[in-house]
Amino acid sequence: MHKVEIISIFVENKPGKLEKITKILADSQINILGFSITSVKDFGVIKIFVDKTQEAYQLFKEKGFAVAITPAIGIEIVDKPGGLHEVVKFISSKGVNIENALVYVPESRKKAFFIFEVDNFEESLGALKNNGYNLLTKDYIK
């Protein structure tokens, strides 16, 4: 399975909001593997890639957050100059539009993945699969 899942949380842009979220994860021993914030002045969406997705989702839901799980695709990037460029070039050559992205590094200086959301998940995944690029699967998530 090449589908990975990202947790999205709606937050008002106020001091201490991020802290609240990281605390919830820390208290439950959930590891953050990747992270991004999209902010539009007074509100934003925090995207987190964690080791225990369902557990994290339930936690935030119980605490009353507006939270969603979104599917994403991960592609391995080689740790060398132009590594990310090559991957992004490949993605755009397949006509896939990157909606939101973050980076996951399972092994420092050895292995990294570019994780991104797309418009149409199934179609985009189909276009990117089997092209010699290493796509992220659950096996890499620890």
Binding site: I6, S8, F10, T38, V40, F43, V45, A66, A68, T70
Partner: peptide, 15 residues
């Protein structure tokens, strides 16, 4: 307040 069930993770939908 936004509706919890409306939120799907997309910023542009909120905008």
């Amino acid at each position: 307040e936004i509706d919890r069930d409306f939120f799907d993770g997309r910023v542009e939908r909120l905008l």
